[in-house]
Each structure stands twice: as structure tokens, then as C-alpha cells.
Write a protein that binds this DNA or RNA. Structure first.
Length: 500
RNA sequence: GGCCCCAUAGUCUAGAGGCCUAGGACUCCGCUCUUUCAAGGCGGCAACACGGGUUCGAAUCCCGUUGGGGCUACCA
């Protein structure tokens, strides 16, 4: 009977959590929730200078947004608490001391400047830069002298100078590293904080992690981790190194790739289900041709060994398409719930709209859902549902509103609609088509100007259904307003490019 | 520079020696439906990086080249 599966997502609360981090979290989650196991959230805040509470908040928000839950973590505790590495300093110090007792850890008094100089020198000479081990065998006299100079030591780990380290990775297969090629890494900083290498190895062990699923950028580090585990007589976990998610320029995702922060995507109006679906298909495929997959379907089919080794570029366009699919398939009620706060923020919906108004919003959402890709575009594309304060776009001006024949048509239509007893799509259609017939023009010759006048744009859902959802007085008012402006020649095309 | 990984269209991918005349999806381009399209339907453009092997047969296996990426920090 194998040990219960335990995985961890272990982000550093520095900078901003991006889509690549979330991808790693998702794959951990899919693996552990599919198998039945425990998900641990551990915060690797051993970088005292760059860790921030804000970044920690972003991590929580991002995970919760996608519905990636965890069983143990800083916020909920657990049997291996604490889960913040900064609260585990004494533990790492103990292991660092153990390594020193073993003769495998030693104090190094080199300053960062000296080390940098060393690297430059080696590079200049065409030698691979690595720590040269100059503090490996310091005598007591050396040490005394160095301390007198006011130097504070860090602790390095004595790596093997010969042989190879073999890593058996679920995704990457067998990878072999030459031991002689790396220098002794720092495991405890001068500040007393551990470095990543010591902290992960110790915590993965102490927290009984069985599968380390992380981005492939950590693969080369794994040779250090394996040696550390050997030295400390720790049973290594299984490793699965995921391929990287790249930006459009094919390099590792970072701030300069624009909107990569998780919060940006949530703000833009990506649906979490869509993001989960999209991210799951980066570096993994169910092997079938379906692409729109529910969380359950993904959970059901996911396996680490099916993961790819080649990196993938995050294609925002396709992500948006997929989001559009999810919006289109969404229950309008649900959509309205998601939309409400966004609209309230823009002042387009009241703080407490009431049941009728809410039901109305559901109908608006339903009318628009097939053409919206992002929730955030809703408040611009559907603005005219909520307010008279919208602009007439260039196409509307060019094609209809600047036409001298338009104003009379709009006025006639306004007169007719003002007297309508019933305000519904059917009655509106009759009225519009009836007017067209009387004027001896095609229905389109009335419909298009009407749309332009009422919505300010040339595109949108069925005109009659759209007007049905507006107040009669508002529609009539808009028709008269546009007629007046048009007649006055104030709706000439602008020089600007059409805005999206 | 060194080490490691990767290599199917612009992008995400299917493909685990014959089923491949290389499939699907996004994008783009047509056509179509419609009062409009930014929706729907239909169709199209577009790829096995290159060179050597192995084999009756290679996108699939091996080697090399080229290209890309990652690591090479008292960051993780």
C-alpha cells in the first residue's frame, strides 16, 4: 500500500502571480483531486527583500478564483504547520547545523561583490562560472582573521565533485547531470534565512510530500536537491517537471508580457471555468478532439504521464475565444450575477437593483451573451441598455446618421412608436416595417438608422428585441435626439479610427 | 560560454513504424443566413526545421546540424 498522495503548490509571494504559476497550481490540483490525496499550500517567503503581503493576497485570490482548493495551508493550518517558510527558520537552521556536523556544510565568508568578481573572471577566461570552493577548507586562523575583518558568513553545501546525479522524472524521463559542473550552493544566507534549495528539500520531506509537481525551470536545481536528500538521508519524492508557459516572444512569462497577472484576467472578465479549461490544455491533451471540457471531464482524464515536454505559448486570442464559448453557454441568470458588480462599478446599475430590474438584466445578458467574449466588454458593447449617455460611433455616423434622409425617418418613427400601446418585439417590428412600407423603402432603410439612433452603433442583437428591453420613452427620446442632431449636421463622421 | 530540455501550420495540439493524401481548435480569408455582426452555418489558406542513417516502410527510432527555451544568484 503506497503512502497517501500529497502534493504541494509552493509559490513565492514576490512580484505578481502570473498565469504560469496558476498553471502549475492547476496541474497539482488536477493530479491530486483526480487521484484522491492532499493538497498543501506552502508559501516560500524566504526572500526577505522581495516577499510582500500583497503578493500573498494575490496568490489566495488567484487560487480561489479558479476554484483550486487546498487542504493544508497558512490560512487553515494543518498537521505540518506552519506553512509559511519564514515561520520555520529554526527548522532550517537545525538542518543546516546537521549538515555542518556531517562535514557537508561549511561557512563561506565571501562577499557578494567578491563572488561576482570571481564569476566575471571565470567567464572572461572562458571557464564555466561556478563558486570555486575557496572557503571549503578554512583553518581556524583564517576564520578568525575573516571575522576580524567584520565579515559574516553564509553556509554552503559541499556538493560531490565527481560522479553523476540521475533524476527520474515522471514527465521529463531520466535526466543525468554531471556533479563536477556545479559549485557549492548557499543553503543558509548570512541573514539566517535558508535559500530555496534547503527549504524545499526540508519542507517537502517534513510535510510528507510524495509528488513534487513544478515548472521545469527547477529541473537543473533538482540535482542539488537530490544531493541534499542523500546527505540528510531523506527519501526523495517523485518529481514531475512541467513545461514552461511562454509569452508571445517565446520567453518565460514575466511582468513585461503585459496582462499576465492573474488578477488582470479576472478583471477582464474571464470566467474561471474557461481559464481552467484553457490552462489545462497547455502542455496536456486528453488525446481526443474535444476542447471544451468541464472540470469533471478534465479531472477524469488527466494524467501526469500524458503531459508534454515542449513549452507552449500563451495565446490570448484563443483564450478569449474559449471564454466566449463559456459565456455563450452560460446560464443567463449566472451571467447576470457576474455582470452586476461590473455594471455597478461603472455606475450603470443601482447598488440594489430590485427583483424586476435584476430580471431585466438577465434578459439583457441573454440577448448579448452570444457575441461577448469578455465580461468586461459588456459594459461598452451593451452600454446603451443602461444609459442614454453613449456616443455614436463612426460607422453609425458614416452609414446612416450623416445621411440627410435619416432625420425625417427617425422623426416619423418616433411619432409612431410614441403612440404604441403595446411595447414588445412583435409590435415594434410591425411598427417599423409598417413605416417602411408607407415610406416606400425597404425595411432595412428604417431598421439601420433606427439602430444607429437608439444604440449609437451598427451592430448588436436583434433590433426589435433590443428595443423591447428599453423604455418606450427612452427609445422615442433617442430617436428624436438623433433626428435633431442629424438634421443639424452634428453627426458627421469623425476623423478618428473606429474604436473597438 | 557550459549543462539540460524541446522541435507537427502564426498559436494550442492529435499522432507512440504502415490506419497520414498528417486530424482537430484558435487566428486569417472567402461564401452563406440575417435588419447589423463582433453571433450561427459552410468552405479555404497554412505544418512534420534540415541532413544523414535503421527499416520493405519513418512525423514517429538513432546520430548530427540548426533553431528555441531553461538553468548557470546569499531569487525562487
Amino acid at each position: 500500500m503506497p503512502d497517501a498522495i500529497r502534493v504541494r503548490f509552493a509559490p513565492a509571494p514576490t512580484g505578481y502571480m502570473h498565469i504560469g504559476n496558476l498553471h502549475t497550481a492547476l496541474f497539482n490540483w488536477l493530479f491530486v483531486r483526480g487521484q484522491g490525496g492532499t493538497m498543501v499550500l506552502r508559501i516560500e517567503d524566504t526572500d526577505e527583500l522581495r516577499s510582500t503581503p500583497e503578493a500573498l493576497g494575490v496568490i489566495y485570490d488567484g487560487l480561489r478564483w479558479l476554484g483550486l482548493d487546498w487542504d493544508e495551508g497558512p490560512d487553515i493550518g494543518g498537521p505540518y504547520a506552519p506553512y509559511m517558510q519564514s515561520e520555520r527558520l529554526a527548522i532550517y537552521q537545525g538542518y543546516a547545523q546537521k549538515l555542518r556536523d556531517l562535514g557537508l556544510g561549511y561557512e563561506c565568508f565571501c562577499t557578494p561583490e567578491e563572488l561576482e568578481e570571481q564569476r566575471q573572471l571565470m567567464r572572461a577566461r572562458g571557464i564555466p562560472p561556478k563558486y570555486d570552493g575557496r572557503c571549503r577548507n578554512l583553518t581556524e586562523a583564517d576564520e578568525l582573521r575573516l571575522r576580524h575583518e567584520g565579515r559574516e558568513p553564509c553556509i554552503r553545501f559541499r556538493v560531490r565533485e565527481t560522479g553523476k546525479t540521475v533524476i527520474n522524472d515522471i514527465i521529463q524521463g531520466e535526466v543525468i547531470y554531471e556533479n563536477a559542473l556545479i559549485g557549492d550552493p548557499v543553503i543558509a544566507k548570512t541573514s539566517g534565512f535558508p535559500t530555496y534549495h534547503l527549504a524545499v528539500v526540508v519542507d517537502d520531506h517534513l510535510m510528507q510530500i510524495t509528488h513534487v509537481i513544478r515548472a521545469v525551470e527547477h529541473l537543473p536545481n533538482t540535482q542539488i536537491h537530490r544531493q541534499l536528500q542523500e546527505a540528510l538521508e531523506i527519501e526523495p519524492p517523485q518529481y514531475a517537471h512541467l513545461p514552461l508557459i511562454l509569452g508571445e516572444d517565446r520567453t518565460k512569462l514575466s511582468k513585461r508580457h503585459g496582462a499576465v497577472a492573474v488578477t488582470d484576467y479576472a478583471e477582464q472578465g474571464f470566467l474561471p471555468e474557461a481559464m481552467v479549461n484553457f490552462l489545462a490544455l497547455l502542455g496536456w491533451s486528453p488525446g481526443s478532439e474535444e476542447e471544451i471540457l468541464s472540470r469533471e471531464q478534465i479531472l477524469d482524464k488527466f494524467s501526469l504521464s500524458d503531459c508534454s515536454r515542449s513549452p507552449s505559448v500563451f495565446d490570448l486570442g484563443k483564450a478569449e475565444w474559449m471564454n466566449g464559448q463559456y459565456i455563450n453557454d452560460a446560464d443567463p441568470e449566472h451571467l447576470a450575477d457576474l455582470l452586476l458588480p461590473l455594471l455597478q462599478e461603472e455606475g450603470l446599475m443601482a447598488k440594489d437593483p430590485g427583483a424586476d430590474r435584476h430580471q431585466w438584466l438577465v434578459m439583457v445578458a441573454q440577448l448579448m451573451q452570444s457575441r461577448v467574449k469578455l465580461l468586461s466588454t459588456f459594459s461598452t458593447w451593451a452600454r446603451y441598455f443602461f444609459t442614454d449617455a453613449f456616443d455614436y460611433d463612426n460607422r453609425a455616423r458614416q452609414q446612416w446618421l450623416n445621411d440627410p434622409e435619416t432625420a425625417p425617418k427617425l422623426t416619423a418613427l418616433a411619432d409612431r412608436l410614441a403612440t404604441l400601446d403595446e411595447w414588445n418585439a412583435e409590435a415594434l417590428e410591425q411598427a417599423v416595417r409598417g413605416l417602411a412600407e408607407e415610406l416606400g423603402v425597404k425595411a432595412a432603410q428604417v431598421i439601420h438608422p433606427c439602430r444607429a439612433a437608439v444604440t449609437g452603433t451598427t451592430i448588436g442583437p436583434s433590433l426589435f428585441h433590443l428595443m423591447e428591453l428599453l423604455e418606450q420613452a427612452d427609445v422615442v427620446g433617442r430617436l428624436r435626439r438623433a433626428a435633431g442632431l442629424s438634421a443639424a449636421g452634428e453627426l458627421k463622421p469623425t476623423d478618428e479610427e473606429e474604436s473597438a
